[in-house]
């Protein structure tokens, strides 16, 4: 046990390095995109027609008159220590705003991930354990069709039917800041379902493919021929061999959730991290966009990193 733990701690830095490198490159691209290309945050905040003196004063106030390399390192250091900088628009630190929105996004994403685990994964297993049957084909076709529908279309159709048509849920999920997202669960249902639908069809397809491949393997066939009943074949012979691909499929749902949240949160007016990114882009708030965008990208990269870990034999247990 201690040997295993020691080998883990020795391996972890090597596994973390590629992900950290990706994040470094992403942060550089993000810095370029929000700070340098279009004119800096000060001129963005004051607009094109502001007097040069005012822009210069704000620039000095925000430390934008320093060389870009120094500002980048400073920003990067701030990200690592949790200091996300001060918005040129609101003159407030953006860290607390980002943290509050991220917390609400986490509630949504956790709910969606729970649906993926409880619905999409079993659906993928059932479809894959008997490949080629009508049930398998229906599941595969449905997942593939759902996967291609943009989230905002799904969101609007759900709002039309379940909020306005049937009146089961509120059409807008604007949860108040103080009480937290969990205080009003009815508002969470539709955004969570929308988010889970797309990520879930992606995961279900991956799980189905892995299970279908394992279902054709000789030892599963042998178990079936030996007259072992189907549930036991599934539990004892099929599933143990696909644990790693299933973990991988789940981890790969995380980037989907992060990307999909951009649209889903905006469509439902849910004040989460991704809606904050979209809002910051619309308001041209560079510092807020940089911080929130970096956090969202980090979530996606983490998902890919976890998937890669799950795919390595020594981790699959």
């Amino acid at each position: 046990m201690s040997g295993r733990a020691a080998s883990l701690s020795r391996r972890l830095p090597r596994h973390l390095a590629p992900a950290a490198l990706v994040l470094l490159v992403v942060s550089f691209g993000l810095f370029l995109a929000v700070e340098i290309l279009p004119g800096d945050p000060a001129s963005q905040a004051l607009g094109m027609n502001a007097e040069p003196e005012r822009t210069a004063r704000l620039r000095a106030e925000l430390g934008l008159d320093r060389p870009p390399a120094e500002r980048y390192l400073d920003w990067l250091g701030g990200l690592l220590t949790g200091d996300f900088g001060i918005s040129a628009l609101t003159r407030q630190p953006v860290g607390p705003v980002i943290a509050e929105h991220a917390g609400r996004s986490l509630v949504l994403a956790a709910g969606a991930l729970a649906i993926v685990v409880c619905v999409a994964v079993p659906a993928g297993i059932l479809a894959g354990s008997r490949p080629g049957t009508a049930g398998d084909r229906a599941t595969s076709l449905g997942a593939l069709a759902l996967l291609s529908v943009p989230e905002f279309v799904l969101a609007t159709l759900l709002i039309t039917v379940f909020a306005h048509g049937l009146g089961w849920f509120p059409p807008v999920s604007l949860v108040s800041g103080g009480s937290g997202a969990l205080a009003e669960p009815a508002k969470l249902v539709l955004p969570t379902v929308t988010l889970a639908a797309v990520a879930g069809s992606f995961t279900a397809r991956l799980v189905r493919a892995a299970v279908a491949e394992a279902a054709g393997s000789p030892h599963v066939e042998a178990a079936r021929l030996a007259g072992i009943r189907e549930p036991a074949v599934l539990a004892r012979h099929l599933l143990p061999s696909v644990r790693a691909p299933i973990a991988q499929a789940l981890a790969l749902a995380i980037p989907y959730l992060a990307g999909g949240a951009l649209v889903v949160e905006t469509a439902f007016g849910y004040p989460g991290l991704a809606a904050l990114v979209a809002e910051a882009a619309a308001n041209r708030d560079a510092v807020l966009l940089g911080g929130a965008g970096m956090l969202l990208a980090a979530v996606a990269v983490t998902g890919f990193w976890l998937a890669e870990l799950a795919g390595r034999p020594q981790w699959s247990g």
């Binding site: 993000l30 370029l32 995109a33 929000v34 290309l37 951009l262 966009l289 965008g293």
Partner: peptide, 20 residues
């Protein structure tokens, strides 16, 4: 691969922001 790990929508939103 760098382009594949960041959600495409996020890249697009950032690029449109940079393009003013």
């Amino acid at each position: 691969e760098l382009l594949l790990v960041v959600p495409p929508l996020l890249i697009t939103v950032l690029a449109l922001n940079a393009a003013s």
